[in-house]
Design a binder for these strands. Structure first.
Lengths: 168, 168
DNA sequence: TTTAACTTTCAAACATTTCTGAAAGTATAA
DNA sequence: TTATACTTTCAGAAATGTTTGAAAGTTAAA
C-alpha cells in the first residue's frame, strides 16, 4: 500500500469510528489528520486535505479545541493559526474521558438523583423503578470513581494498573 | 415528584444519553422503559407508552435483541411476544462492551494493521504516520486486553478490581 | 384449509444534523 | 488610517438518519 492510500484509509476509518461514538465525521477526520501530521497545519491545509468548506473546517477545529485534544500554535512571521494534535494517546484518552464525564455522566447522575425521591407508593411499578434507578446510581458512582482515578493518573500508573488487571 | 413524571424524565434522559453515544433515541428509550418495567412488555405496550409507530417499535426492539441486552419472553396462552431487559447493570455493561468491541475495536484494529506495512520511505510524513499508527495499535491492544478481561469477569471480580484501582 | 392474531418490511415523509460559501468581523502591518 | 490577511458567523442547501403506516409475511388456532 502506498502512503496516500494508507493515510486516506486511516482518516476514513477514524471518521467512521467517531460517528459510532456520537462525534461528527469531519471532527474525527480533522483529528486524524492532525494526529498523523508531523507539523502543525493551518485551516487552509485542513480544507485542502479533506476537501471541506472553510466554515466546516473552522467549526470542527473549534470543537476539537473545546474538547482540549488539539492545540493552537503560531509561527513567527506568519499571521495564520496552526493546529496540532495531542500525540500522547493516553493523554488523549484521559482528556476524552474527562470531557465525556462532564458532558454525560454528570447530567445523568443529576437526573437519577432528582428522580430518586418519590412519595411512598407500593405499586410494583414504583418499587421496580426505585430499585433500578438505585442500581444505576451505584453504577454511575463506580464509573465516576474509576474515571476520576483514570483522569488524574499518569501513563505509568495506567499501564501498571491495567497490566495488573489483565494478568490477574 | 410524581411517578409518571419521574418515569418520563428518566426515559428522556436515557434517550439523550444514547444519542450522545451513537445510539438512536427510540432504541435507548425502549431500553429504559423495559429496564424499569416490573413485567415484560409487548410491542403493543411499547407503542402506547412511547407514542411511536409499530414499525419504529419493531425495528428498535430488533436492534436491542441484536445487541443482546433485552430478551424475548412468551406467556402461555398468548401469542404475543413480550420483551424484558437485562436488569443486572454490570451484565449490561459487559454485553455493551462485548458488542462495541466487536463492532468498533476490531474493525479499527484491522485498519491499523493493514496500514502499517508501508514501503520504506524517509519522508517525515511517513515516519510520523508509522509512529502514530504504532502507538494507536498499542493502545488498541491494551483496550482489547482490558475489555477481554472485563467481559469474562463476574460482578465480584469487577467490583474488587475497580475498588483496588480506586483505593490505590 | 381458512381465519385471525401478530410480526416484519420498506418506500415515502419527516426530522435532525452537517456543510457550504459568502458576508461580516477582527487584527496586524504599512 | 487603510489595506490586507485571516477568522468567524450563519442562513439556506444538502446529506443523513429516523419514523410512519400500510401492505406483505408469518404463525397457530379453529
Amino acid at each position: 500500500m502506498e502512503f496516500p492510500e494508507a493515510k486516506n484509509k486511516l482518516i476514513q476509518a477514524w471518521g467512521i469510528l467517531g460517528t459510532n461514538w456520537g462525534i461528527n465525521k469531519t471532527m474525527a477526520q480533522i483529528h486524524a489528520l492532525l494526529m498523523i501530521a508531523p507539523e502543525p497545519l493551518s485551516t487552509e491545509d485542513i480544507i485542502e486535505h479533506l476537501n471541506i468548506s472553510r466554515g466546516n473546517a473552522n467549526m470542527n477545529v473549534r470543537a476539537l479545541l473545546d474538547w482540549g485534544i488539539i492545540y493552537k500554535e503560531f509561527k513567527s512571521g506568519d499571521r495564520k493559526e496552526y493546529f496540532k494534535s495531542e500525540k500522547d494517546i493516553w493523554a488523549l484518552a484521559r482528556q476524552v474521558a474527562r470531557e465525556r464525564r462532564k458532558r454525560e455522566l454528570e447530567p445523568i447522575i443529576k437526573v437519577l438523583d432528582e428522580v430518586q425521591y418519590l412519595e411512598e407508593n407500593r405499586t410494583p411499578e414504583v418499587q421496580e423503578f426505585k430499585e433500578m434507578t438505585k442500581k444505576l446510581r451505584d453504577f454511575a458512582d463506580a464509573s465516576d470513581g474509576f474515571l476520576e482515578k483514570f483522569m488524574k493518573s499518569d501513563n505509568n500508573w495506567i499501564f501498571n494498573s491495567l497490566l495488573k488487571i489483565i494478568k490477574l
